[in-house]
Simulated assay, not measured.
Amino acid sequence: MFRVCREDIRSKSQSERRTLLESVQAKTEYPEIFRISALIDFKSWDDLAIVREQSRAMIAEGIMLKRKSATYQVGRKRGDWWKWKIDPLSVDAVMIYAQRATVGAPTYIPITPLPFGMATNWCPLPKPIRALPMRRSIR
């Protein structure tokens, strides 16, 4: 949120902007749709690590740590916030087929849906965002 009642609030601290956001959310007709993430109270990094491990159950990829006094900054400025992600899930898979790139870099193989599973029980994975470099492809 950058403006409240036509006032630019980017120069206000994170705490001040949070208070403004909460007041706007409280006045909305649909507070269950316009939700604000809960604040996390912790006394040690170990306490925070326990909360972080619960992220997946909350359908989140981790937690955001934000300096309360920080103003809004464009881009990724160091020191004012930190995204502490949970470890990604992994899967063992067998690449059955791939397709050479027809557009863009011909040295890359964009992976078409990647089947995985056991015996006759195959399930396609969605197409990944990144392509495999040719040098890493299996011959």
Rank of each mutant, 00 (worst) to 15 (best):
R52W: 10
I50T: 13
G104Q: 00
V91A: 15
K66V: 09
I50Q: 10
P124E: 12
Y30I: 06
E29G: 15
A131Y: 02
M95H: 10
F34I: 07
A49F: 13
P88T: 12
Q54W: 07
Y97D: 12
E61R: 07
R17H: 01
M95S: 08
K66E: 07
F116H: 07
G79M: 05
A38M: 11
T71K: 01
D80Y: 09
A26P: 01
L39Q: 09
I50G: 04
I63C: 04
R67S: 11
C123R: 15
I109T: 00
P110D: 01
G79L: 04
T120I: 09
R130Y: 10
L20C: 03
D87P: 03
A26N: 08
P126M: 01
D87N: 07
L48H: 05
S44W: 09
V91S: 11
A38R: 14
K68N: 10
E53A: 13
D47C: 04
W84T: 02
S55T: 04
P110K: 05
W81N: 04
R18E: 05
V24W: 05
I109L: 13
P31Q: 01
L48D: 04
R56D: 11
I63M: 06
E32M: 08
A57F: 07
R76M: 04
P110T: 07
L39T: 12
K27R: 14
A49T: 14
S69I: 02
W45F: 14
S55Y: 06
S69M: 03
K43P: 05
S23A: 13
W82R: 13
A98F: 15
I96R: 10
A26H: 09
P128H: 01
Q54S: 08
R67Q: 09
L21F: 06
I111F: 02
A119S: 08
D46M: 13
G62D: 02
A101F: 02
Q25A: 15
R56G: 04
M95F: 13
D47S: 07
K83W: 14
R76L: 08
A38I: 10
A60H: 02
L39E: 11
R100T: 02
D41F: 12
P113N: 05
M64E: 03
F34H: 09
E61W: 13
Q54I: 02
R130F: 12
L65R: 04
I96Q: 11
K43I: 05
E22M: 10
V94Y: 13
I111E: 00
A38V: 12
T28Q: 06
W82S: 15
I111H: 03
V91H: 12
I50N: 05
R130A: 11
Q54A: 06
W45L: 15
T107F: 08
A105K: 07
M64I: 15
R35L: 09
F42T: 00
E32H: 08
K85V: 11
W82A: 13
S69N: 06
T107P: 03
P124F: 15
Q99T: 04
L21P: 00
I63P: 01
G79Y: 02
I129S: 10
L132Q: 03
I40E: 05
S23I: 10
A119H: 08
T112Q: 05
W122M: 15
I96M: 13
I111P: 00
P106W: 08
S55L: 05
R17G: 02
